[in-house]
Design a protein around this nucleic acid. Structure first.
Lengths: 221, 221
DNA sequence: CTGTTTATTTAGCGATCGATACAGAAGATG
DNA sequence: CATCTTCTGTATCGATCGCTAAATAAACAG
């Protein structure tokens, strides 16, 4: 049931008809992502975007559809790059995974090679007048992140590195809250060191796996 | 060096010349606050505001100056109402004060008689294109709130209800982070119960005042 | 070469933004 | 009453918003 009798299905046959694009789509998307990251969705104007991307409006619309689709692509790229940079589910225990995730966020949120804070969090506040589709996409991403956290903790309970009595949902909510709060603090200009101190405090709350005496060994530090 | 020889300086001589204002300034400001609360600064248009306030643009500009000054007044009103509703510094101990503050926020952020989330937090994200003056005003308010928290904890250390070894700044940062995060969670639609559960978890981290054995009595709950 | 296809530039569309000019209305003052 | 002062409604202003029509440019196929 192939489309043709002749085996012309090359693995990469981009025949490239018409005038080729004069800009790199990926780097243009990266530039757009930075603008959305810094300003949010609505406050980022087409002029802001085209200037940062180095192209003119018609090229933007031809390559990305419209502002909303461009934002959705930028959001996907943002999430993917964050997830790739921090494969926290690879950690052996739920506690290690969460600590790694929080530590990564504390450093990334205060990184100097990109805007401060979290792009998704900016998007929540700056999509009040956006379409329902976009708002739903943003909310879904955030809910999925919380659910992913919860699933990792639940896995820890099943695998035995988290006490059986632990409340995976409540813990996921708590650490999600801390991560959201850290993103706001970073936006306010709070230092990386302060964020890391907050991570350390938050991790003291993670239920100890072994005997009761082990809990909070860092209390005297 | 009084301005006149005759003692006409009455305590309240609002002689009210000209046509009186046909709307109540306070309730109009309250309506504007709700719009800013829901949409943020930039996404709230003058039409949004005038419609909610029940007035026309010239009345808005005559009574409040411009959009930015109106927002600043709305922000003052917001902070004042929140502070009046929760005089957390009245509590005897720093721990009780913080627990009261967090509990109040968990309920208020999910209140049904106003928009979800925190107006100040919306403002941070939606003032990217606003004037430097407005951005500074918002940041100053948020920094002041953290400093107020820190001062209360420090007072607790001095008064003996918080252990001498406690780090007031780190604790203030942590609970500020939790509050910011709760505001985002509320915006996402998380339930009041979940927020209160987060508060309960966060309070377990507060340093115990008395002997070492007292810490985390709620661990078995 | 002549066509076809796609991307680019220029220029500007209708809508909305924040903010105002203007004239009339509603009060106090005389 | 007339006059002054301030507010209100109408009807915009110039600027910017997201977006696009039209002409031109750069690649292909024949």
């Amino acid at each position: 049931m192939k489309k043709s009798a002749v085996p012309v299905d090359a693995p990469k046959p981009p025949k490239a008809r018409g005038r080729p694009r004069s800009f790199d789509r990926e780097s243009a998307l990266a530039a757009a992502m930075d603008v959305f990251w810094k300003k949010g969705f609505e406050a980022a104007s087409i002029s802001d975007l085209t200037e940062a991307m180095g192209i003119n409006p018609p090229s933007l619309y031809a390559a990305f559809g419209d502002k909303e689709q461009l934002f959705l692509e930028a959001m996907e790229r943002y999430e993917r790059s964050r997830g790739d940079s921090c494969p926290y589910s690879d950690e052996a225990t739920a506690r290690a995974a969460i600590e790694r995730l929080l530590t990564y966020m504390a450093t990334d949120l205060t990184g100097s090679d990109h805007p401060r804070g979290c792009m998704m969090l900016m998007a929540v506040a700056t999509s009040a007048n956006a379409s329902a589709r976009l708002k739903k996409a943003v909310t879904d991403k955030r809910v999925a992140a919380r659910e992913h956290l919860r699933a990792r903790i639940k896995r820890g309970i099943e695998e035995g590195d988290v006490p059986r009595g632990a409340d995976a949902s409540a813990l996921a909510d708590f650490y999600s809250t801390v991560m959201n709060g850290m993103a706001m603090m970073a936006r306010d200009g709070v230092s990386r060191r302060s964020l890391l101190a907050t991570v350390e405090q938050a991790m003291q709350l993670f239920p100890a796996s072994s005997a009761r005496g082990k809990r909070r060994e860092a209390a005297a530090a």
